[in-house]
């Protein structure tokens, strides 16, 4: 039994808690003993990307304190938020303390704390790929000619975290064929609060992404879209629903949980927004 701390992210916590519960079950079936640090809130990436460095640092310091109680691996339900902690925190905290006229040793100390906690962070598929043992209580029958999914690799997972193959590998191990659309390296347009401050460009990108997804889905008879990043999914799903062309959008953890239970991927896929 490996103990892990679960970092659900604010978006999963608030808007898709079922993905958090799915991740919990998926980890536990593989022998993980899950701890949920209840003080966690948000990694601060929204603020950081918008240029609010000090605000991001406030959230980063809180995040570190929330996750420092143990030395266990931290499993993140977002590639982007994982990248924030691992690759942005150390420099962010150092620079913020310097910018606020703080003590140099204090800056170095926070940087060291950020580096230490960052070393423990794994995005869900990264952790699963290296977790010992197969799912004990999972059934995962071969999917055979089961329908496939389109996989969207978020930009920060691709280029900052550099975790490009883990999620497709994990999905393949679970018997889910996944396909990446044409122009898969192009951003979906979410970009945190960019989606709110620059909605027209953001939406043009979402529409371009959907066009590639729909073409691929048609070609391979895919029944849904999955990603390790809920931000991209909410943005794409929200656009499709508004356009009157909803398409099932599932977090990676939700897909794996379904497969663990032996449910075919195409069965009762939730079409959120059509209630």
């Amino acid at each position: 039994m490996e103990a892990v701390s679960l970092f659900v992210t604010c978006l999963v916590d608030m808007f898709r808690p079922e993905a958090g519960r799915a991740a919990l079950r998926v980890i536990e079936r593989r022998g993980g003993q899950v701890n949920f640090p209840v003080d966690q809130t948000c990694c601060g990436q929204f603020s950081y990307n918008a240029g609010y460095q000090h605000e991001a640092a406030l959230l980063a310091r809180h995040w570190i304190e929330a996750f420092e109680a143990t030395r266990d691996p931290i499993v993140a339900l977002s590639g982007s938020c994982a990248a924030m902690v691992v690759h942005i925190y150390p420099e962010l905290l150092k620079e913020d303390i310097e910018a606020q006229g703080g003590d140099e040793r204090d800056a170095a100390r926070w940087q060291a704390r950020a580096l230490a906690v960052g070393q423990r962070v794994r995005e869900l598929s990264q952790w699963l790929l290296h977790a010992d043992g197969s799912p004990s209580s999972a059934q995962s029958p071969p999917n055979g000619d089961a329908p496939s999914l389109i996989y969207h690799l978020g930009c920060h997972m691709r280029r900052v975290l550099r975790a490009t193959t883990e999620a497709p590998s994990i999905l393949a191990q679970s018997g889910v064929p996944v396909h990446e659309p044409a122009d898969d390296d192009q951003c979906c347009g979410f970009g945190g609060t960019y989606s709110m401050t620059e909605p027209m460009v953001s939406t043009a990108l979402a529409d371009a992404k959907w066009q590639c997804i729909q073409e691929k889905a048609k070609e391979v008879s895919a029944v849904g879209l999955t990603s390790a990043d809920l931000g991209c999914l909410l943005h794409l799903e929200g656009r499709a629903v508004r356009q009157g062309t909803p398409f099932p959008c599932l977090h990676l953890a939700e897909v794996l949980d379904r497969r663990d239970q032996g449910r075919p991927i195409g069965e009762n896929l939730p079409l959120r927004g059509l209630s």
Binding site: D13, F15, R16, G20, L234, R239
Partner: peptide, 23 residues
């Protein structure tokens, strides 16, 4: 700030029970 989002997209409401509340 959120107004921009809704020009072109919908959003699910905040869950009845967040993950943290459920936990």
């Amino acid at each position: 700030l959120a107004r921009g989002w809704f020009k072109t997209r919908t959003m699910p409401p905040i869950a009845e029970e967040t993950f943290g509340e459920w936990w």
